[in-house]
Simulated scan of single mutants.
Amino acid sequence: MELFSFWSWLALGTLLLILEVFGAGGYLLWIGMAAASVGVLTFLLPALPWELQLLLFALFSILMALYWWWRQRSAVRRSDQPHLNLRGQELVGKVFLVSEAIVDGRGKIKVGDSVWLARGPDAALGSRVRVVGQDGVILLTEPVQ
C-alpha cells in the first residue's frame, strides 16, 4: 500500500495554492509549490519511500521560503513617487509664510491649507521661511531674505 501517491502531493499543492488565493500573504504559495514538486518527483520515481518524500517536502519548503525571503530583501524598490507618504520631504526647499511666530526656535508655518510645526531661527508672524529639512513632524526652517 502506498502512503503518499503523486496525486496526494499534487492535491495538497493545489489545495495550498487555492488557500493562498484567499490571502495568506505568500506563505502558502511556496509550501504549495514544494508539495507539487514532490508530487512531480513521486510521479517520476514511483518507488520513492514516504520518509524521503516527507523529507524532500520539508527541504523544498524551507529552500523555497528562504529563496523568496532573499529575493524580497535584495530587490531594489524604485518608485515613480519617492516622496509618497513623506509629505515633509516633499516640502524641502519650498518657501512658506509663518502663521504663528517662531519664538525660541519653535512656531508654525502655513503649508497649503494646513499648519505645520516649525523649528528654526526666530521669525515674525507673516515672514517667509524656507523648509530645509524635517525632524519627525516638525519642519526645519531658515529665514528667506
Rank of each mutant, 00 (worst) to 15 (best):
S5W: 04
F6H: 14
F6Y: 15
W9R: 12
W9A: 10
W9E: 07
A11L: 14
G13C: 06
T14S: 15
I18W: 02
I18K: 01
V21K: 01
V21P: 00
G26S: 12
M33R: 00
A35H: 02
V38M: 06
V40R: 01
T42F: 01
L44G: 05
L45Q: 09
P46G: 11
W50Y: 15
E51S: 13
Q53L: 12
F57C: 08
L59S: 15
S61T: 10
I62R: 01
I62W: 05
M64F: 15
A65L: 15
A65R: 00
Y67N: 12
W68V: 11
W69I: 12
W70K: 13
W70C: 03
A75E: 12
A75R: 13
A75D: 02
V76M: 08
R77G: 04
R77K: 11
S79V: 00
S79D: 13
S79F: 07
Q81L: 09
Q81H: 12
L84V: 04
Q89L: 13
Q89K: 12
L91P: 01
L91W: 02
V95F: 04
F96Q: 04
V98M: 07
E100F: 04
E100D: 14
A101K: 10
R106K: 15
I109S: 10
I109G: 07
D113T: 02
V115S: 10
W116T: 04
G120P: 03
G120R: 01
P121E: 15
D122W: 01
D122K: 02
A123W: 00
A124Q: 13
V129E: 10
